[in-house]
């Protein structure tokens, strides 16, 4: 009985995982292959395999291709994938925790908090001893955590039940306020920080392997923390009281989810600036396709979010090549209408 149940249960979901993984793989291959110099997918597979397994020889492969793949396109695609995955799983978790399909790191102001943390670090030239290159992401994470805490506290003070609309409005208020602080800092400094503006718009270009090293540990920790709480997220999406009735230690679990979400958002913002709507659209789409069960929603959102941001990055650098659009523009062009549609659907339901 038990085995049969588990089997049919997995059977239903295996297709989902295969589809999502295939989407991610296609996105990666396309992301590496397409550009001013196009590279054949077979070459990509060969070069990467050779990198992982040194015994594979790289005969008949152009050294330039190998260089493009390993030093330019692969790190870029991986970074886009990690950022997309981080934002998507963080969004999925925030949505479950706040029982609100409109929540995402961007709409509830966490991204702005992370940006402020990053800009402040650069502005004041802060450096945590021994943290080295992790100073910036650590400050981003700290600020995203402080922001989400402030937003929730503020929203609860306005209205105990913390309605969807209240949280979003509070998020917008915080976003604008924090954005103003960032602008103020930029105005106060000279030319050298003007580059931050470009960074703030969000981009994964010209980052290289160093940035992947920065984001990876945070991505792993945040993801593990969230996956450990997927059942609790299921319970909490029925309301905190309900979750407690069922036996969830709500205060502890909620804090874990908020911290994990801040780690993921903070690290993503630290390496790529603010990229909106990934955390909103991807979990929503994943939920529509394969249901709201967080045990599957979270891992599937990782795959879908990674694939989506790789594709968005691809579009941003090819659509009006050789000029590159900021990736945030592409996600917003897709994301904002999606946001509007979700909002309208919700209104219709009410």
């Amino acid at each position: 009985m038990q085995k049969q149940y588990i089997r049919t249960y997995l059977n239903n979901k295996i297709l989902a995982y295969i589809t999502a993984a295939a989407f991610l793989l296609c996105a990666m291959l396309m992301g590496i292959s397409i550009g001013t110099v196009s590279v054949h997918p077979m070459t990509i597979i060969k070069v990467i395999s050779a990198e992982i397994f040194p015994f594979i020889s790289l005969e008949n492969t152009d050294a330039m291709h190998s260089n493009i793949i390993m030093n330019i396109r692969l790190p870029r695609v991986l970074l886009a994938g990690l950022v997309g995955a981080s934002l998507a799983i963080a969004g999925a978790a925030f949505q479950g925790l706040l029982r609100n399909p409109l929540a995402d790191p961007y709409t509830i102001g966490v991204s702005s908090g992370a940006s402020l943390g990053a800009v402040l670090t650069l502005f004041l030239g802060l450096s945590i001893p021994f943290a080295g290159m992790f100073t910036l992401p650590l400050f981003s994470i700290l600020f995203s955590f402080l922001t989400i805490f402030a937003v929730l506290l503020f929203a609860r003070n306005i209205e105990r039940s913390m309605k969807v609309e209240t949280i979003i409005l509070t998020g917008i208020i915080f976003s604008s306020f924090l954005g103003a602080l960032i602008s103020l800092m930029i105005a106060l400094t000279g030319e050298e920080l003007r580059q931050i503006i470009g960074w703030l718009l969000g981009s994964v270009s010209m980052r290289g392997w160093a940035y992947i090293k920065i984001i990876t540990p945070f991505f792993v920790i945040g993801t593990i923390l969230l996956l450990m709480n997927s059942k609790e997220l299921n319970a909490m999406s029925f309301g905190e009281e309900k979750a407690q009735h069922i036996g969830v230690d709500v205060q502890k679990r909620k804090m874990m989810v908020l911290i994990a979400g801040s780690i993921l958002t903070g690290a993503a913002v630290a390496v790529s600036g603010t990229i909106g709507f990934v955390g909103l659209v991807i979990p929503h789409l994943t939920r529509l396709l394969w249901g709201p069960d967080h045990r599957h929603l979270l891992p599937l959102s990782i795959l879908m979010g990674a694939g989506f941001l790789i594709m968005a990055d691809l579009v941003s650098r090819t659509i009006i090549a050789p000029t590159e659009l900021p990736i945030g523009v592409i996600t917003a062009i897709i994301g904002a209408p999606a946001f509007a549609i979700i909002l309208m659907k919700r209104k219709n339901k009410i």
Binding site: R99, P101, H245, R287, P292
Partner: peptide
């Protein structure tokens, strides 16, 4: 909380459901 949940269950007046879980998923919780 877990120990208490094995002794006391609660049926509130309103139960919110933000997402479309199936009946069985809901009961399984």
């Amino acid at each position: 909380p877990k120990e208490l949940a094995k002794i006391i269950a609660v049926l509130p007046q309103h139960s919110s459901q933000a997402f479309s879980y199936t009946v069985k998923e809901t009961v399984s919780l």
